[in-house]
Amino acid sequence: MSRVIAVCLAGGVLAMPALAQENAGAALQWLQKISSAAQRLTYSGVFVYQNGNRGETSRIAHLVDNNNESERLEVLDGSPREIVRQNDEIRCFLPESKLLIIAHRNNRRSFPALLPKSMAGLTEFYQVRKGPPGRVAGIDCQSIVIEPKDDNRYGHTLWFDPQSGLLLKEGLLNDRGETLEMVAFTEVRIGGPIEQDALRSHLESKTSGWQVFNVQSSDSRGDDGQWQFHVLPGFRRLSWLKQQMRPDAPEVTQVVFSDGLAAVSVFIEPASGQEKVADNAFSMGAIGVYKRRIGDYQLVVMGDVPPPALKRFAEGIELRKK
């Protein structure tokens, strides 16, 4: 009898890693499905964005037609901000600031190749597993729990429609399991048709007198060896860009790093003014910002990682002596 008991126990112990592995494998496959669904699905709906004590409702429409992507997001509460995207061009309308910012997505062409690699690498720094089923916006959904293995990144919980793969709800969690940020559909319609009016800007005709910042970005091959980045574990460089933020401003170098889920941008530009400004940290929602001056350069380090990790990231940047 005792041997039976021991074998039962050992069997249980042996089964654990296999079950956990199977669980993680299924979760990773779903993660991949979610990623591709975001690109290929046509959908429309209303979602709530909660950040700290602030919540806003927005409407989104996303159309994929012959490999062309059109998208419009309109904030329904407060100032009617709007983002309209046609393939890689993003137009961001900010009526309160009377500002239109035009930017371009940079990494789209590398997307299919990038994805599987990052998914496999995720498990080194995150524990990925299936969560319980749930219900969001009237749709029975499945959840995935992504927990960081160190204090350099946030945790995520994702709820998605198992049929289509569409992400219906996403939470960003701190190391105490508290929700820092939440995006959740309250109603959603997967599939078309979508009226053209739902995709065109409603503010474009009202931008007379607005400032327009057309952020011109170009790929730069240029790691000239001037800068050394001692990045956080798991982060690798995604791109190295030259950005012209404003016509009258100097060109800014932007280096983007990611661990597959979290991303950190380092903006490097010539420092204006001679005065020494102390290092400065603040946050814009879940996005942390750490400003640092090195030599004659001003660095802005920005990303969705915990503030202490962002500080370590910023302090790991060195200007090499020529």
Binding site: S35, S110, L114, S217, L238, V256
Partner: peptide, 8 residues
Amino acid sequence: ASVSSIQL
């Protein structure tokens, strides 16, 4: 815009 490729 630069990190859209990794956003879910």
